[in-house]
């Protein structure tokens, strides 16, 4: 994994982006939302930010075992 494709800016080098955290399971307690992390080998749903680009927040689905990016969606703006 060396690049992410920002739906707004296009394909950019990975270092422009910042990983925030994995998404909690729906219905999680407030404690779990802050402190617990979902760990999946092949399908991870995460929040990232394009900090050195449009600064948009992204929803990224990745396979953390292969590094493949499965889906990138920009949050807000009706794209979700």
């Amino acid at each position: 994994m060396t690049r992410l494709t920002c739906p707004f800016c296009g394909p950019r080098e990975l270092r422009e982006f910042e990983f925030h955290k994995t998404l909690p399971e729906p219905g999680s307690t407030p404690y779990a939302r802050v402190y617990e992390r979902v760990n999946r080998l092949d399908d991870s749903l995460e929040h990232w930010q394009h900090v050195q680009g449009c600064r948009g927040w992204l929803l990224v689905r990745r396979n953390p075992s292969s590094g493949a990016v499965l889906e990138t969606v920009i949050l807000g703006g009706g794209a979700q």
Binding site: M1, T2, E13, L14, R15, E18, F19, T22, N39, L41, S44, E46, W48, R62, P64, S65, S66, G67
Partner: peptide
């Protein structure tokens, strides 16, 4: 490196 990974491949950057 900065994001969840099981690949054991480091980022060039």
């Amino acid at each position: 490196d900065g994001f969840p990974s099981y690949t054991r491949e480091g980022q060039w950057s």
